[in-house]
């Protein structure tokens, strides 16, 4: 038997493409939240101890550790608390670059959501800018996060920094 060993020039890589299907449960709160989007309503959940409102709704407040047992509507408009302008692509994403990903504190909610800001130049987006949801037309809403196409400026005066700096 030879003891010289296998070829000196090694195989450099073993390739593998992973295909892993998943099927996610939304959970009852999220089901109701998504269904309400069909009616142009954004639901939040209210903490049974502090009264603070979470959007999208969650079953318990991470702050108070108490259940959030009531679902209530919040406004489909609010304030951009902070944002970034994305200039680089991610595999599998179709949003045209550049785009603005913003934290938006909806009126009536105590935490911010992530939202896409359109209908203005990215350079014109400001912390404090008032924005509103742009909904898909009636009949086209499916009860999914895509029912809100994006947010756009309302033209209202900006909110002062101090009014939202504590809830980025």
């Amino acid at each position: 038997m030879s003891t010289s060993g296998p070829p000196k020039e090694p195989v450099k890589y073993v390739e593998k493409q992973l295909h892993l299907p998943y099927c996610y449960v939304a959970g009852d709160y999220k089901v109701r939240y998504l269904a309400a989007l069909k009616d142009k309503t954004i639901l939040g959940s209210k903490c049974s101890r502090t009264g603070k409102v979470f959007v999208p709704p969650i079953v318990a407040s991470p702050e108070s550790f108490a259940p959030c047992d009531e679902l209530i509507p919040v406004a489909d408009r609010g304030v951009v608390t902070t944002f970034c302008i994305v200039n680089i692509p991610v595999i599998g994403r179709s949003i045209e670059l550049p785009y603005v990903a913003a934290s938006v504190a909806l009126d009536g909610a105590d935490i911010s959501i992530y939202a896409l800001i359109q209908e203005c130049a990215p350079a014109d987006v400001r912390m404090g800018m008032r924005v509103e949801a742009v909904w898909k037309p009636d009949g086209e809403r499916q009860g999914s996060h895509e029912d809100i196409i994006h947010f756009r400026p309302t033209g209202e005066p900006d909110a002062p920094l101090a009014s939202f700096m504590h809830r980025l």
Binding site: V14, K16, L18, H19, L20, P21, Y22, C23, Y24, V25
Partner: peptide, 20 residues
């Protein structure tokens, strides 16, 4: 239940010989 454990747990094995 959200994934397929037979496929997922294949990935625990070494990628060169056993998972492959």
């Amino acid at each position: 239940s959200e994934g397929e454990p037979e496929r997922v747990l294949n990935l625990q094995l070494d990628p060169y010989y056993q998972a492959a």
